[in-house]
Write a protein that binds this DNA or RNA. Structure first.
Lengths: 167, 167
DNA sequence: CACTTATTGCAAGTCATTTGCAGTAAGCAA
DNA sequence: TTGCTTACTGCAAATGACTTGCAATAAGTG
């Protein structure tokens, strides 16, 4: 459960899959990259270790990992077309997205469980998961004098990220 | 403010734009479609009134409307690549997404303002907006015996939607 | 009713992601 | 260790969702 490499290997095994060098590489790259990298970023990083790795292999692996629930794919609105991937359950955390630089900060908010459950009852639906996305300007962009300009759906100029624990 | 047609016309005017038949058609189609239609769905619906309408015009108009803050674009994760559009501010409401049929139910939850403000302070960022997406099974899919199967990121089989007021 | 130029339709182009296919290599069996 | 089966990979071509260039239209102005 804690070691993704082993977890993935076991899951593969149990469904007649094979643990290949590429999958191992993608997994460890995913572990080494903090933040929410895109498939392309994972590819470029992994390529440093093995230049023969192919982008479609990255996509295929990411897709399998998502289906297994080992990584959670995210799609933020705005100019960014690329999906982002992150180790762990989608439910485990929420995000702040800087509309100027694309930086993502994670946080967890237990109070949302209560809100989700409440709306599940009110709407007569079964709520299996939830994601809260906060949008705005990070400290760096704010002090750099950036202003949000487009009604809340910002153009991302560059990308960076950091991870912040639950408070 | 209340009449989108007029609001849009005024905004266009003030920036040297022109109110065309196409834009009027797209606007009224947007008003007639409840839920969160995709560009394609808006296009198909509008085409019923004027078959000569072009898809790129729909995209262009939707992009302008988004920039003006008159419609809010949404992107839900999962198999859906297409963006969805909705009249009104992104901030005004949140969504429940049925991972089985794609149905979207809106709701508003004032408590989230407080949570957003709290994290703005804690993370030292300026929060301009937020979106909460609840994922799960709607009543219809649940009673139809559908089970979520893929770790929370469902494949959408068909699309439908309804709107629910604030409670 | 001219006339300027924003806007449209159409076709071609992007970009992110997927897929068909033939060659490669896990993992099991002998 | 060697074979063997077939899952997996790399590569190239395809797809889906938009976006863009351009010449033809048509708002809104004088």
């Amino acid at each position: 459960m804690v070691d993704i490499q082993n977890d993935a290997a076991e899951r593969l095994h149990s469904q007649g899959g094979r643990m290949t060098a590429q999958r191992r590489l993608i997994l460890s790259t995913l572990e080494s990259l903090s933040g929410h990298p895109t498939a392309e970023q994972i590819y470029e990083q992994a390529r440093l270790s093995d230049p023969r790795l192919n982008l479609s292999t990255v996509y295929r692996t990411l897709r399998w990992l998502s289906a297994e629930g080992l990584v959670s794919p995210q799609r933020f609105e705005g100019q960014q077309r690329q999906g982002r991937f992150d180790l762990g359950q989608a439910e485990a955390h929420h995000h702040f997205l800087c509309v100027s630089c694309g930086r993502v900060i994670e946080f967890s908010e237990p109070a949302l469980e209560v809100i989700g459950a409440k709306w599940g009852r009110r709407l007569h639906v079964r709520v299996d998961g939830m994601t809260l996305v906060l949008r705005g300007l990070c400290e760096a962009c704010r002090s750099a004098g950036v202003q949000a300009t487009d009604g809340g759906h910002g153009e991302v100029v560059s990308t960076a990220s950091m991870r912040v624990g639950s408070v």
